[in-house]
Amino acid sequence: MMDFLSTLISGLSLGSIYALIALGYTMVYGIAKMLNFAHGDVIMVGAFAVITSVSMLGLSPVLSILISIVCCVVLGVSIERIAYKPLRKSPPLAVLITAIGVSYFLQSLALLIFGSTQHSFPKIINMPAIELGELTIRGNMLITLVITTAIMAGMSIFINKSKTGKAMRAVSEDRDAAELMGISVNRTITITFAIGSALAAVAGLFYGTTYGFIGPYTGSMPGIKAFVAAVFGGIGSMPGAMLGGILLGVIENLSKRYISTELSDAIVFAVLIIVLMVKPTGLLGKKINEKV
């Protein structure tokens, strides 16, 4: 029983990281109507920014986290400006191929700069484990859970209450009508990319502290899994991304513990396929009618 509970808690912690990444995916998908394949690699860049500033430059953890967030925001916005903006009116296939190109570009650039070896992630979250009877909860898991929950609550308030959040929802609902109402679509998309990338930086930090190692290809797998989470919850829906992320983390950890470590990725992908077959709009997604 205790074993099950601790697996569940580490699953929740992993799931909240997925949820953070999935939020970025789902926001970009909802507003720019594109799958930002490079989102996962922004996580990797954020994690490397922390490694560089802590281990190589010797900066303080708080400063390095800020640097990492700034790096990711600048990166996300420049990717959008350089690679995606000229393709706003292109067919989806062209945008998708470009996004894959950007993802590949970031990976190979990181490979050239940092080499193919795994870099150990500095231990910047120092929190003693909590023991509840027989159950031990690792400190960084607790912090991950608390902070991601806070971020998700903050995001919900931001999207629902603030003016920018309303603009984002308007653009995702109907881009042309939003533009007619005086909302700058380009600015809204840029803001979306900036927020998504900042969330990716935070996710990169937690991913690094959870796994301890970062390599050039680290980002692609959590990136794809977070996309699975976004689809699972219903793409375009923010609560859906949170729910999907947490469920996926729990499923992955339980299957790792009780079925097979090697097959856990395959199981996660099988979940995606089943969801898309049975309920293509996800758990909380709205039904999209295809327009002629």
Binding site: L87, V102, Q107, S108
Partner: peptide, 16 residues
């Protein structure tokens, strides 16, 4: 790999 990535991006941008 870097060249592959650039080929993908540049070809798509040029096409558009």
């Amino acid at each position: 790999m870097l060249i592959y990535a650039l080929v993908l991006i540049i070809m798509m941008l040029l096409n558009a």
